[in-house]
Design a protein around this nucleic acid. Structure first.
Lengths: 205, 205
DNA sequence: AATAGACTCAAATACTAAATTAGTCGAAAG
DNA sequence: CTTTCGACTAATTTAGTATTTGAGTCTATT
């Protein structure tokens, strides 16, 4: 296979995903048909199946692309910060802001039968969380090495990263639950501060 | 109305709720009919409507009774502890244990059409959270007064209590998501410790 | 005041036929 | 030898309808 072909294949995949993204966002996963996507791309439906094995795979690819973009953006923001504490805080807040932007979006995409795609959504969530855990682990490790996080040991990084993600999840769900928009931002910040302070000071026992 | 009548009315209410609880746990909210409950109580269906205005009200009363029992139990456990830090930690862990016990239970109860009862569930969750916030606020206040929580001010208690509840929510959801049973308990404890440490040490800025 | 039995109407269920659509296959184009 | 297409099939969804169920009401009775 020549190099030019690989590029062309990539281009087609990109087209498909971009179109699929547009349609999924507009109509949701169930109301968007493979024919819809194919027509919009200007290809036959079978062509889609040449590149992706199923509609769920297409959906997965769309979401994955978005995830990569978000992670890349956060990574970039973080790379400008010196201290791991600041980095971690920024991660918490960025996550919150991303969610705020995407919350309406995803409620459209996921409209309809959630049960039907429960395995897919589970897989997506799992991989999202994995990426986040990896990133947080890096931050924690740096913080341990430079002495900012006195309360934790290197071997516990994985667990603490998991804890960070679950705490973030809790804060996220409060976006949906508590309505007072003004307070929210501040509260997320306070929570983050408390948590990070907890990492900084050495545990007694 | 005579005193004896009030007692009898209370007894009937208690019977209804106990029976309803049993049936809801077994068949879920939708598959349990008001006739089922009435038959089991040994009364006519209309009698239920004499005491409760709707099936959702009966369900609400059942869940509320359970909530009261749980809160009372936690309160009792906590009252034996001296330090607010210990109390808060115990609250976190008790919440976790309660959830672990009830998780299978509630997945049965809520089976079926969740969307249909979304308002009811929202109301229940809201009141659950309110009770917990109140309780946590008391603990925090004591901790501020005795100097254990150096990082927070009295006027922020409400917000911090809300944060506690959201953090707990995050930890709770990890019960469902992460499967490694052995690690879970430990992780919850670690998370709690970190968070409480964060409350104890004074913020710089 | 408390209960029951008969009643109503809205909603859930069950069934069916018709239409859509996910996914396959073999052939054709480049 | 990669990429595309159009026709095909099998599965799923939708739409329409008939039937049953069950929440909530009403009236009568104790």
């Amino acid at each position: 296979m020549k190099k030019i072909d690989i590029l062309r294949e990539e281009q087609t995949r990109t087209d498909i995903i971009a179109t699929a993204q547009k349609l999924f966002q507009k109509y949701g996963i169930d109301k968007t048909t493979m024919d819809d996507i194919a027509r919009e791309v200007g290809k036959g439906k079978s062509t889609l199946y040449y590149y992706y094995t199923s509609k769920e795979e297409v959906f997965y690819a769309v979401v994955n692309k978005e995830k990569d973009e978000v992670m890349k953006s956060i990574k970039k923001t973080i790379s400008n910060l010196e201290s791991p504490s600041e980095q971690l805080k920024t991660f918490f807040l960025s996550h919150f802001n991303e969610l705020k932007h995407k919350i309406n979006l995803y409620s459209v995409i996921l409209q309809g039968n959630v049960k039907k795609h429960i395995d897919l959504f589970g897989r997506i969530q799992k991989e999202n969380i994995s990426s986040e855990i990896e990133m947080i682990k890096e931050i924690l490790l740096k913080g341990i090495k430079n002495g900012e996080f006195k309360n934790i040991k290197e071997k516990d990084c994985e667990d603490i990263a998991i804890i960070c993600v679950t705490v973030i999840q809790g804060l996220d769900s409060s976006i949906i639950f508590f309505k007072d928009e003004a307070q929210k931002e501040l509260r997320i910040e306070t929570a983050t501060d408390i948590f990070i302070k907890g990492l900084q000071y050495r545990r007694q026992k």
